[in-house]
């Protein structure tokens, strides 16, 4: 007995230290003030940085304290670990991007079970969802608008190189479907090849330049519905179009990386779809604040289209104003179209 105690003295001492800490901390600690809202970005990414600028603008404009944090990896399990840790700290509302559209719902359910409200930004989770709102681009509609614009630029005929980003992202499939639906409506247009799985710039550059080398003569237009292939294609087409012997390839991409915008200014590419990441951040936090003040959604779940703007040479330096106007319009309509005011006597948090 004694020798066993001696042999296990360190684990026993550790157990005792933990017990003393638990008892001591619980006895001494007073109820802390409850924090309010949290915005979580999945990982370091230009999109997340732009969303965060919207969140910070909202916090600045309204004086609402919002805890902003960014995860280490763009995966659902990493998001679960981090958000569950935040949830334990008693936040009342969460603005979250669904790491996985279906898997994220388990996390949202867990938060809702703790009376913590969830507004999703950036991408719609699988339906039905325990989230109250999604503020995002309608990805299929966006891809269809981009595809129509590209076909218009191509003169209504020709062959398209389709550039997809993450094949494991369900939104990529929606974008692909959108493009294919539009192409199916134009008998003189066909998709010559689809490239996918381009989550890094290097990977995207390698694949796109291989396609250009192999079948540039067969390509009349290119469409990219992801950030990385867009930037890679903008860069490669800038180089491609410097050579007067090369044929003109029409291109429309997505998002507003400086390389993409410069390629538009230079005339190397035609257009890009500007989403509204600023609005994804701003509007999602505005909704959370209203919910925290007692406003209630008029429906169990609502999708708020954060809008988009086609950026071309004519508006490349002024498109940001148009995007901001979309955000302002959503904010103006939000209370009347999406929420019901607090009932008299509802306790404020």
């Amino acid at each position: 007995m004694t020798s066993s105690l001696v042999r296990h003295r360190i684990p026993l001492a550790c157990a005792l230290a933990i017990a003393v800490t638990v008892v001591g901390v619980k006895a001494l600690r007073r109820e802390a003030a409850r924090p309010a809202l949290v915005w979580y970005g999945n990982a370091v990414h230009p999109y997340i940085t732009e969303v965060r600028s919207g969140v910070e603008a909202f916090a600045r404009d309204t004086g609402t304290p919002i805890h902003c944090t960014v995860g280490q990896e763009w995966t659902q399990d990493n998001q679960n670990v981090n958000v569950e840790a935040l949830s334990t700290q008693g936040y009342r509302g969460f603005s979250l991007y669904p790491g996985d559209p279906a898997g994220a719902n388990a996390l949202f359910r867990l938060l809702r079970g703790r009376d913590q409200k969830v507004v999703v930004y950036g991408a719609e989770p699988a339906l039905p969802t325990p989230a109250l709102f999604t503020v995002a681009t309608d990805v299929k509609k966006s891809a269809m608008i981009a595809a129509e614009e590209l076909i218009r630029l191509m003169g209504g005929r020709g062959r398209i190189l389709n550039l997809l980003e993450a094949v494991t992202d369900v939104n990529t499939r929606k974008r692909d479907e959108g493009l294919r639906e539009v192409v199916a409506q134009h008998p003189d247009v066909q998709i010559v090849q689809t490239l996918s799985d381009m989550m890094q710039m290097g990977e995207a550059t390698t694949k796109i330049q291989s396609a250009l080398a192999a079948r540039a003569e067969q390509i009349d237009g290119m469409i990219a519905t992801g950030f990385n292939p867009t930037v890679a294609a903008a860069s490669l087409l800038t180089e491609w179009h410097k050579d007067p012997r090369h044929k003109r390839i029409r291109f429309i991409g997505i998002d507003t990386h400086p390389t993409t915008l410069q390629a538009i200014r230079d005339g190397a590419i035609d257009a890009t779809v500007a989403q509204n990441p600023f609005g994804h951040g701003y509007v999602s936090c505005a909704l959370l604040r209203l919910l925290d003040e007692g406003w209630t959604p008029i429906e169990e779940y609502q999708f708020i289209d954060a809008g988009l703007v086609i950026v071309n040479r004519t508006n490349v330096d002024t498109y940001a104003d148009a995007v901001r106007q979309i955000t302002d319009r959503i904010l103006l309509d939000m209370k009347s179209k999406c929420l019901a005011p607090p009932q008299p006597g509802t306790p404020r948090p």
Partner: peptide, 16 residues
């Protein structure tokens, strides 16, 4: 077990 926790079988399970 991870699928059981998420309530869906997510193909990206295991990436990390």
């Amino acid at each position: 077990l991870w699928a059981s926790q998420l309530g869906s079988a997510t193909p990206e399970t295991g990436d990390t």
